[in-house]
């Protein structure tokens, strides 16, 4: 502390000596503003600002549109992949399944590159080998339903897993109801899904 105080004292003394050395030089005259150039300058700043804002808005809108499209594509994909369910020992398309399949038809029409594998499943009851056939019957019923709307049959492949790949492990009626299902796997054109118009 003592050392520091010593230095401060010396520095102050030096300043005092210097101030007493003579008059300072006159300050330079302030520049006279050129009104025209100032206006041009301000205008250009405003224009750039507006342009930037417009660009930002355009980008935001673009992003929003893109996000909206992505959301729609995701929704379309979810619609394509939505499972349908069947009654016990039946391959008939139920009413609720018809609505779900109808929604797929519109998307598939708008997305000609998309191909789908339809997987048929059965619940655990009954004969294991019979269930292999029943699962295939269900997948085939879905394929027939979809191609009935003019979609090319070769856009769909079908496979049955019988009772071998249950969605739910339990053995209650609600488990079985979830296991009697058609599942949809997009095998081609996953990046070319267009939402239905």
């Amino acid at each position: 502390m003592i050392v520091r105080r010593f230095f401060v004292t010396v520095f102050a003394a030096t300043l005092l000596v210097g101030a007493c050395g003579g008059d300072p030089p006159p300050p330079p005259p302030p520049p006279q503003p050129d009104q025209d150039s100032l206006q041009r300058y301000n205008d250009s700043v405003a224009a750039a600002e507006a342009e930037r804002r417009a660009e930002a808005q355009r980008l935001a809108a673009e992003r929003a549109a893109e996000a909206e499209l992505q959301r729609a594509v995701r929704a379309a994909r979810a619609t394509l992949e939505e499972m349908v369910f069947f009654d016990y020992d039946m391959s008939e398309i139920r009413d609720d399944a018809q609505a779900a399949l109808r929604a797929k038809v519109d998307i598939l029409r708008a997305s000609p590159q998309v191909q789908i594998r339809i997987e048929g499943h059965a619940d655990e009851r009954g004969s294991t080998e019979y269930n292999m056939a029943l699962g295939n019957r269900r997948a085939e019923a879905v394929r027939q339903f979809l191609s009935g709307f003019g979609l090319a049959e070769n856009r769909f492949e079908i496979v049955s897993f019988g009772e071998g790949r249950p969605l739910q492990q339990g053995s209650s009626e609600s488990d079985w109801a979830r296991n009697r299902r058609g599942q949809f796997v997009i095998t081609a054109g996953a990046n070319a899904i267009n939402p239905a118009n």
Binding site: Y88, D89, M90, S91, E92, S127, E129, Y130, A133, L134, R137
Partner: peptide
């Protein structure tokens, strides 16, 4: 085994 008389 046949399913010709119906699925069920």
């Amino acid at each position: 085994n046949t399913l010709r008389f119906g699925d069920n």
